[in-house]
Amino acid sequence: MPTIYLNNGLRIYMNNREKGHNRPHVHVLYKDEDYSFAFDGEQLAGGKLPRKQFKEVQLYLSNHQDYLETLWQSDF
């Protein structure tokens, strides 16, 4: 998955070679911190993302769930 750049310095990417990760998720980079989010918007790991950035990530995920699911199943 190419890195997606959102407003407010957010970068979203997916690792297709992560072993042992049963729940589909993306990684979000913000100010050199790494956060993990399930496709439904639930934060799985990382510290507390600021509210404005958290809402932006949730909006992106809700609008792109089908695309993300397809990527997760593929060998990109």
Rank of each mutant, 00 (worst) to 15 (best):
V28T: 07
H27T: 06
R17T: 15
G41W: 04
N8V: 02
R11F: 08
Q73W: 05
P50Y: 06
N15A: 00
N63A: 12
E18I: 05
L71A: 09
N16H: 09
K48P: 06
K55I: 05
S74P: 08
Y35H: 06
M14S: 00
L6P: 11
S62T: 12
L10K: 12
Y35S: 07
L44S: 08
S74A: 12
N15D: 06
Q58L: 00
H25F: 11
A45T: 10
L29Y: 08
G9L: 02
Q43V: 10
Y13Q: 04
N63D: 15
E18P: 03
E42V: 14
R17A: 14
G41C: 09
H64W: 03
Y35E: 07
K52H: 06
P50T: 08
Y5F: 04
D66K: 12
Y67F: 12
H25P: 10
H64M: 06
Q65Y: 11
A45F: 12
Y60I: 06
L44P: 05
L59F: 10
Y35A: 00
Y30K: 13
F37Q: 02
L10C: 09
G41M: 03
G9R: 07
A45Q: 13
E69R: 10
E33A: 13
D32I: 01
N15K: 07
L71T: 01
H21F: 07
M1F: 10
L10A: 07
E42Y: 01
S36P: 01
H21Q: 10
L61R: 01
N7V: 01
W72M: 08
F76T: 12
N15G: 00
Q53M: 03
A38L: 09
T3K: 05
N22V: 10
Q43Y: 07
N16T: 11
W72N: 02
F37R: 12
L29C: 04
T3E: 06
L6K: 15
G46H: 03
D34N: 15
Y13E: 09
L49D: 05
H21V: 15
H27G: 07
S62P: 00
D34E: 14
K31N: 15
M1C: 09
Y67T: 12
E69K: 03
G9C: 04
S62H: 10
G47K: 06
G20Y: 05
D75H: 15
K52F: 00
L44Y: 01
L44D: 01
D66L: 14
E69Q: 03
R11N: 08
K52W: 01
F54Q: 05
M1V: 09
M14F: 11
P50L: 00
G20R: 02
S74I: 00
K48L: 13
G9T: 08
L71H: 05
Y30P: 09
V57F: 01
Y60T: 04
D32M: 02
Y5D: 15
P24N: 02
I4N: 11
N8P: 09
D34P: 00
K31G: 02
G47Q: 04
R11W: 01
Q58Y: 00
K52A: 05
T70D: 14
G9E: 07
P2C: 02
L61Q: 01
R23C: 05
I12T: 04
Q58V: 10
P50C: 08
D75L: 14
L71G: 00
L59A: 15
N63I: 03
F39N: 09
D34M: 10
D75Q: 12
L49G: 06
K48M: 13
E42Q: 13
L10V: 11
